[in-house]
Design a protein around this nucleic acid. Sequence first.
DNA 1: CCTATTTAAGATTAAAAAATCTGAAATAAT
DNA 2: ATTATTTCAGATTTTTTAATCTTAAATAGG
Lengths: 141, 141
Amino acid sequence: MLSSACQDTIRAAVWLSTKPQDEYHHIQKISDALDLPYHFLAKSLQTLVHCNILISRRGANGGVKLAKASCDITLISLIEAVDGSTFFDACVLGIGDCEDEKPCALHAQWEKWRTEMHEMYSAMRLDEITDDVLLRKIKRL
Amino acid sequence: MLSSACQDTIRAAVWLSTKPQDEYHHIQKISDALDLPYHFLAKSLQTLVHCNILISRRGANGGVKLAKASCDITLISLIEAVDGSTFFDACVLGIGDCEDEKPCALHAQWEKWRTEMHEMYSAMRLDEITDDVLLRKIKRL
DNA sequence: CCTATTTAAGATTAAAAAATCTGAAATAAT
DNA sequence: ATTATTTCAGATTTTTTAATCTTAAATAGG
C-alpha cells in the first residue's frame, strides 16, 4: 500500500511536527528516535527537501526542519512526494491502460475507494495527527 | 496493494468463471488469453488448488476448473489464498505491534478502511464480476 | 503398455525494492 | 583558517519479489 520509504517519511514528518518549527534536527536523531535506518530515511527526507516540505542545513548544528506550519502540510503531499501518485492511478488488477472507457472488472468499485482515500489523505494534515498524538497519548509516531 | 501474483490469480479466476464450470482448461490457455507469464500463473493457481478453490487434473486433456460455482467463491478467499491476510492486519505505518491498545497515529482512520475493504472483498463474488463483465461488455478480465 | 500431454514441485535466475556505504560539499564553532 | 559535524549524491550490497527452468508424476487415448 505505502512503500516502507513512505512510511518512514510520514513517521519522521509527524515526529518533526511535534517539535518547534524553527529548530533544525539531525536526521540521525530522528532515525534513532523512530528506530529507522539512517541512510534510507535520509534519502527519503531529501526528497521532501526538494519538494519544499522540509528545509535542510548542512554542517554543524545542521539538520532538517519543516518548511511550513504543520497545519499547511497534507498527508497526500508526503505520500506523492515519496511514492508518486501511481497508487491513485493504477489499476487494481494491474492492467496497464485500464480507464473509465475501458474499465477492468473491479474498476468501478475501486474508483470509489481510491477517491475516498485520496480525499482523506488530502484533508489530513500533520497538525491533526500531532494533536491526536498529544491528546490520546499515542507514543507511536 | 495486491501482489502481482494475486492480480494474476484474480484475473484467471474471473476468466474461468466465464466458462462452463465442469470443463478443464489448460493453464497455458489462460496465460495466453490474459497475457500472463505461464509458470508464475501456474504456481499461483496451484495455491488455489490447495485451498480447494480450483480442481486440477494432470495429463492429456487436463487443466484446471473451478471447484465450486462462481457464486460461492468470494474475492477475499482468492486474495487471502495468495497474499495471506497481512494487509488486513498490518499497520499502515509499518509499526510491528500496532494494535487497538497501542495504536499508531493513523490507526483509527485506517481501521475503518480496512474493515470496509475486507467487507467488500468478502461480499464480492466471482459471478457478480462475471455478470458485470458480460453486461457492460468489459473485455478486461 | 506406450506416448504425448499437462500439472506439480522445487531449484534457479532476474528484477525490483530496501538498505548500506563512501566520498564530497557545506556550515558553525573554535 | 582549521576542524568537527552533518547533509548530499551516487554507487554498492542485500533482501524480497517476480519470473523462469527443469525434472518428476499423473492421465487420457491410441
